[in-house]
Amino acid sequence: MIETDRLTLRPWLDSDLDDLTAINADPAVYEWLAGPFTREMNAASITRQQAFQTEYGYCYWAMLERVSGRLIGMAGLMPVTFDAGFLPAVEIGWRLSPGFQGRGYATEAAKAALAHGFSRAGLREIVSFTVPHNRASRAVMERIGMRHDPAMDFDHPRLPPGHPLRRHVFYRIQPGQG
Rank of each mutant, 00 (worst) to 15 (best):
M78Q: 13
F37H: 13
G162P: 00
H163L: 07
Q49S: 05
L33M: 11
Y30E: 06
R143P: 05
A25Q: 10
R48H: 12
S97H: 15
L159A: 11
I46Y: 07
Q177P: 00
R143C: 07
F86S: 03
G85Q: 09
G76A: 02
L123N: 05
A51S: 14
A151E: 14
L64K: 01
D14C: 01
P79K: 11
R167H: 15
F37R: 14
Q53K: 04
L64Q: 12
G85I: 08
E125V: 06
G57Q: 07
G35T: 07
P36M: 01
F52G: 00
W61A: 01
I2V: 09
D153H: 10
T107E: 10
V127S: 03
Y30F: 15
A34N: 13
L159P: 05
P164H: 04
F100K: 00
E91V: 06
V127L: 09
A44Y: 03
R95G: 07
A136P: 03
T38I: 02
D5R: 11
L114W: 08
T54I: 04
A113W: 10
A28Y: 12
E125F: 05
A28M: 08
L87A: 08
L96S: 06
P98I: 00
D26Y: 06
R135H: 13
E55H: 15
D155V: 03
T21P: 10
F82D: 01
I144G: 03
H116R: 11
